[in-house]
Structure formats: structure tokens, C-alpha cells
Design a protein around this nucleic acid. Structure first.
Lengths: 131, 131, 131, 131
DNA sequence: GTGGTCTAGACCACA
DNA sequence: GTGGTCTAGACCACA
């Protein structure tokens, strides 16, 4: 359910955080549902439990999940997850659009690209970007 | 002419590269014009010459500038700069739009944000998109 | 009669201990009254009997309750319970007040907060004092 | 300048965070002043740099300090530090006062204890508390 | 040198 | 078993 790109410059724990938030937003992870334990998920994804811990702790500090020592980690609910994902994403988007504008990309072109992505017309998959 | 944000998560050398490409695209840096030496620019911007060197090297490998040993670095011309900037930027934009879509941002909303940025209606600058 | 907050960072067994001591201090649990068995209470509260056991053992070592093998656990009396609760609490209070002072909280403000809590004017319950 | 209690149940990284915030609030660490590097402080305090990192990263996410890779970590300013320290401390204080009240500590007694601490009349030093 | 990421592994409190 | 803390150590990008 969670797929990571180990080659990406985006740290694994951040990819994990985003994945989990998306799963919540998509309604796959429901309120109070228990997440896999840091150890179990570590084994499943082939990464160190400490890395999972880091992701879980950040998600907890964002109010997206809550952890009870000795019991496990649980989904807090959809609201915080949605808010966090949205605001982060919109901030990123605004940044990149500003960059595009400075790079001489026209408004029309930018709008078309957005529409293309939403309509599934853009063929390129997850382009590796250099920064 | 070149302004850097030392607190940004975007590395200085990348900011430098983008700035220079933008100056070329804007026609301020013209073909065959000589760039300041790494030392001079280092002093001017108050940063390590190594950082400037790194930016110049990348720009050279992208074909945006060229160097003549013992003489200095020069602008290659506008074409490469423009192409590089555009393609990088468009790839990034597409990526982020895909992310936004996954995050539950609607097409309409995304389009409006793009328009807002182009029309200067969005006030926030370079948002921290960290946590 | 005993209410636990499973999400609190305060461990369940500690919450249990405090609850029982409070019930004694309030006169609800009287001298030589028998406590529910660890199993019964475990079922009632929906928690592991080991957790109850841990609380009972600590209470016994504090002289708040006593156990008779094969019969059960009983209330020792009000004195120990009151002393234990008081001294622990006062020590904690002093610590936190010292902290508050270091944090720049003024004496007046601290006094007012105390009065507010006692007069029921502070609405917030059991605030998360994590991050 | 920073002293840690390695025996405390309060994790080292949290003690570090609080210490740094106090130093900022006291005006000893001033705006934009550079903090010791994670490695240097690790050596100085005899603890692992990773532990320092954790503290620094939390402080950064709280807006108390900012870090620039390759350069160092710096004090953001006094405002956030003060706000964070204050709110955390007041929350803790309210919690403990509520506990004290349940434990049968009278309002008068609580107020006197607060006054005593502020007036330096309380002799006991940093009592080891059991939770 | 400086922050940041990740692993392997140990140990603890708690349930 | 579950989360949480900490260490030792490696490796990376950046300045």
C-alpha cells in the first residue's frame, strides 16, 4: 500500500508521512484504526524501525496520528491529515508557479499544463527532478 | 542584481544558477558577455568562492555558459538557458500538480492559484514548505 | 467510578493508583474495604490484569493498601493514602512552579492561575504538555 | 551553560530544548547568534550528536531556531522561544494544580507554596519525583 | 566543518 | 509486543 522511492532526494521518512496522509485523505486509513507497528512496517518496507519512528513522531506532532506506548499508533482522523497535506501542497505549488513565471513560462502554458495533469493527458511519469 | 535567500532550503549554488539563467532569459546577461570571476562574485555576495564555482560548473555542463582557461566565464547565449530553465521548471510543475491532485486539491482550485500567482494576487513569498 | 484516559501520556497504572488514592481520600473507599480483584477490575476497565497488578503492588509498597494471599487486597486506611498523595503532589507542584519562574511566568500570574483552577474558572482539561 | 540531569525521566533532548529556550528567554542567546554545532555540543555535553540533532530539529520546527545546512544553527529570536516556554509551562502548571486539588491540597496551601517558591523560601531543591 | 539521513543495535517503560 | 530514547557510526549535500 505504501510505496517508497529510495532513490529520491526526498527523505524516506517524509515520503512515508505523505503516503500515510494520502491514505487517510483517501479514506483507506480510518479514524482510530491502528497503524502497523514501527517494527512490522520496518520489516515490510525493508527499512529501519527508527526511520518509521521518525515519521510516526512527526505525524503525531502534526496531530495526524496518536501513539500510545505499549499499545500502538492510531489514526487521529481525517481533518488534520487533510489540512496538513493541502496546505503543504498548495505552498509548494505556489512556489513552483512563481519559479515558472520567472523562468519565462507563460500563464496560458502553465494553466494548460495543470489542466493536462488533471485530465490525465500528461504522459510523463514522476519525472526525476534535479532539485 | 542577484539576490540570495540564505535561509532557504534551496542551496545557494542552485539559487545562483537560477538567478543567472533568469538574467540571461531577461536579456540582461547577453551572449558572450563575461561573468564576474568566482572571487569577485564571492566577495560581492559574501559567500564562499567554492559555492560560486559549483554554480558556474553546473551552468557550463548545461551549456549555459562557457569558460576559457585563464580568461573567465562567458554567457553562451539565450537558447540553452531558456530551454534548461523551461524544461526543469515544467517538469517540477507537473510533479507538484500531480501531488496536489493526490492531496485532494481540485482542478479549479489549482487553476485559480496559478492565475493568482501570475496576476500577482498571491502575497506570500517563498513559503517554507518544510514541516 | 474510576475513569482512565487511555490517550494520556500518564501511564494507565499510575492513573489507577491516583484514582484509588483519591477515592480513599474522598472517603469512598473505607478502611479494610476489599478492592476488586485484578481480574474483575481488568474486565471492568477493559485493560490487562498485569496493569492492575502493577498498580496494586505499588500501592501496597506505599502502605496504602494491603494484600492477604488467597483473599484479596484491602484498603489500609486514609492516613497513608493522604500523605502519599499530598507529598507527591506538593513536590510536583513546587517543581513546576520553579520551572514556570524560570520560564518568565510572573508570581502574580502563577497565583492567578492557581486560583482560577480552584475556582473552576479554567476550562481546559488535562492539556497535552508534550510538544 | 547547559546542565543536564542524565538520571531524570525527562529525555535528554527535551532537557536540552528547555535549556536553550531558557537561555534565549534570559537574553543570553541573542537573535541570529550561532549555536554550537551538533558535534561540538555533543562532545561538550558528552552525548551523541544525534541527540543534539533531535533537539535542534524540534526547536526548528517550533520556530525557535533555524538551521542552514553547511553553515550552522542560529537563534530565531526571543518571541517564539518565550511563547513556547510559557504555554508549555502554564499547561503543566494547570495540570498539576488540578491534581493537587484532587489530592486534597487546599487552595490556600497551594497559593502559599507558589509564593514560597517565588520568594525563594522553599528550601528543597529539585525534588526527584516519581512520575 | 555543518546540518541531515539512515542503519544496527541496545535498553527502557508500559500493556 | 509497542512506542520511545540513545549510541556509534556511516554517508551525503552543502559552504
Amino acid at each position: 500500500m505504501i510505496k517508497l522511492d529510495y532513490r529520491s532526494r526526498i527523505p524516506i521518512y517524509r515520503q512515508l508521512e505523505e503516503s500515510i496522509m494520502e491514505l487517510i485523505v483517501l479514506g483507506i486509513y480510518e479514524k482510530d484504526m491502528q497503524l502497523p507497528s514501527v517494527r512490522a512496517l520496518g520489516v515490510e518496507l525493508g527499512i529501519n524501525p527508527n526511520t518509521i519512528q521518525k515519521a510516526y513522531q512527526e505525524l503525531e506532532s502534526m496531530g495526524v496520528i496518536y501513539s500510545i506506548t505499549g499499545k500502538g499508533s492510531f489514526i487521529q482522523g481525517i481533518d488534520n491529515a487533510q489540512d496538513q497535506l493541502r496546505s503543504k501542497t498548495l505552498a509548494k505549488l505556489a512556489d513552483v508557479v512563481r519559479e515558472a513565471r520567472l523562468a519565462g513560462v507563460g500563464q496560458q502554458e502553465a494553466l494548460e499544463l495543470v489542466a493536462a495533469v488533471y485530465n490525465g493527458e500528461d504522459t510523463e511519469k514522476e519525472v526525476k527532478q534535479d532539485d
